[in-house]
Each structure stands twice: as C-alpha cells, then as structure tokens.
C-alpha cells in the first residue's frame, strides 16, 4: 500500500520534471538546428515563474475550469502509463524493482485513449468560454487534427492490442521485454505511429492549432498569467504522455526508470529533428496526409496481424 502511494505521488512528479525538461530541450534543439545559441535549458522554469506571478484575466468560471480540468486530465493519464520498471522477478535486470504504474489494473489502453481526450476537450471548452474568434478557429482545427491523427492512431493501437491479445499496457510491456520489441514485431505500425507523432505532439509541421502568426495562438489566445503557466505544464505532460506511450508500445518500455527516460528523450529528439526543418501545413493537408500514408501503413499492419493470428 505504501509503495503504491509513493508510486502515485512519484509518477506525476517524474512526468512534471521531465515535461519541463523536454520543453527546454526542444527550444535548445530547435535553436541549434536553426544555428542559434538558444535559451538556457531552464528557460521554461523561468517562464513559468514569471507567468505564475503575472496578473491574468479571466472570462468566467468555465474559462478557469477548462485549464484545471485539462491539467488534471493529463496528470491522471500519467497514472495509467507504466514509466519503466518490470514485473519480472527481482534480480533479473539491474536496478529494476516493480512496475512504476500505479493504476495498471484499471482499464488499460482503452482508458488511456479516453483520458488523452480529457486535455484537448477541456482546453476547447475553456477557450470557447472566451469570445475570441481566433479561439473558435483554433478549436475547430484542433478537433479536426485530432480526428486526422486518431484514425491511424486507433489502427496502430488495435493492431498492437490484437497482436498481443490484451488491452493492458503493463502486459504489452512485459511481453516485449520477454521477446522482441514492438518496433520489430509490428514494424509498419511503429512507422505509422512515428509519422503521426508530430501531429499528436502538436509541433511543426502540425502546429496549426496554435499557429501564432495566423490565429494568434488559437485556443490559448485569451490565456495569460497563471492559466498559461498551467497550460504550459499541461502541454509538457501531454507531450510526455504521448512519447511514453510510444516507448511503451514499440520500444519495450524500460526495465527501470532511467532506461525508460533515456528512450523517451531519444524518441523526443527524433520527433523534434523532423519538426525543426519542416514548415507548417494547412488543416486540409494534415487530414489528407494522416489519412493516406500513416493510415495505409497501419491498416496494412493490422491486416497482417489479423491474418497471421
């Protein structure tokens, strides 16, 4: 019971720290690719401190509730995702001690799919509470972008669930640790998931939701001060959740937290490298792209999986 409570406190904290670190890392990496020096890695912390102490404006209860719900949803999602560790008997791997996943036995991957909705839908509601036209446009784009990447993402998830015959992420991870990683056993799904990764993270070329130059950062147009600080943290955690899911499904999780986080950084860097050199696409292009190559690959993998069962 005590370890469980420790895990429940520990995993959001890990997510929080890593999320802020990822945000800083992404700014440096992009700066270096642009041949700039870039901000210090702790720049997001400075920004968050500044935002927390800046005055803000509020358009009413729903406007505030949206932010709180979004952050709460992201924190809850973290609890359902294994952050390294293994169920194998102690001693078989160095530094491994139990699976760090406090709620591994409460619904599995299907719950995670739903909980990942919590954030975007809450932000959409909060943004809708303001009267800003840019927020409306941004939310509409977010919904469509989510539909665009969700079709291949669901195909990927279903292929994995039917390949391993379970809906529990913890079991998928331990099965990968026993045999081959998902990236080898369901390779086309892994490629498809990597192709839609920028869309799920909301980074270029799919940063059309909060496009600052077009629609004044879209849903976030009216958010400032402490609300923006919370949303920055939420964005970071959401990024961490998506990448952690990718690592768990395709790269065999991690036998302990350190290897897990190393894999997370590797995947994140790969996604950032793609993002740093590409321009932004329009929403039509995003829909068309997501529904051709990633969907085709994921579909092919699913047919292979179903036939070979």
């Amino acid at each position: 019971m005590v370890t469980r409570i420790i895990h429940i406190v520990l995993s959001p904290l890990i997510a929080l720290v890593v999320a802020v670190f990822l945000l800083g890392l992404s700014r440096i990496v992009i700066a270096r690719i642009h041949r700039r020096y870039g901000p210090p890695i702790y720049q997001p912390i400075i920004d968050i401190i500044r935002l927390m102490n800046q005055q803000s404006i509020s358009h009413g209860t729903l406007f505030e509730l949206g932010v709180v719900l979004a952050l709460a949803g992201s924190i809850v999602t973290v609890l359902f995702i294994p952050l390294g560790g293994t169920n194998a008997p102690p001693g078989s791997y160095p530094l491994a001690h139990g699976l760090l996943c406090p709620l591994s036995s409460s619904g599995g991957l299907l719950v995670v799919i739903y909980l990942m909705l919590f954030g975007p839908v809450s932000i959409a509601l909060g943004a809708g509470a303001s009267e800003n036209p840019n927020a409306s446009i941004g939310v509409s784009r977010k919904m469509l972008l989510a539909l665009a990447y969700e079709v291949p993402f669901l195909l990927v998830i279903l292929a994995i669930m039917s390949h391993y015959g379970t809906i529990s992420i913890a079991e998928i991870v331990s099965r990968q640790q026993d045999s081959a990683w998902g990236v080898f056993s369901v390779p086309l799904s892994a490629v498809a998931a990597f192709l839609i990764l920028p869309a799920m993270l909301g980074i270029r070329p799919f940063d059309l939701v909060g496009a600052p130059q077009e629609i004044a950062s879209g849903p976030l147009a009216e958010y400032g001060g402490r609300y923006l600080a919370l949303l920055t943290i939420q964005n970071g955690i959401q990024v961490f959740v998506v990448i952690a899911l990718f690592v768990n499904l395709f790269l065999g999780g991690g036998v302990n937290v350190i290897t897990f986080l190393l894999k997370v950084f590797a995947v994140f860097l790969a996604a950032e490298l793609v993002s740093a050199v590409l321009p932004r696409v329009r929403i039509e292009n995003a829909l068309r792209f997501c529904w051709t190559w990633p969907t085709g690959l994921a579909l092919a993998q699913m047919i292979i999986t179903v036939v070979s069962r």
């Binding site: 102490n53 404006i57 358009h59 009413g60 505030e64 952050l71 509470a129 609300y227």
Partner: peptide
C-alpha cells in the same frame, strides 16, 4: 497549483484580443 499563482482579474466577455 492554480491558486498558487497571482490572482486573475475578471473581465467582460467582449474584452478579448
């Protein structure tokens, strides 16, 4: 976490950027 931050000022819905 939200309460930790500086207080917000309620504005009218029409006051948007």
């Amino acid at each position: 976490l939200l309460r930790l931050g500086a207080k917000g000022r309620a504005v009218d819905q029409e006051d948007s950027y």
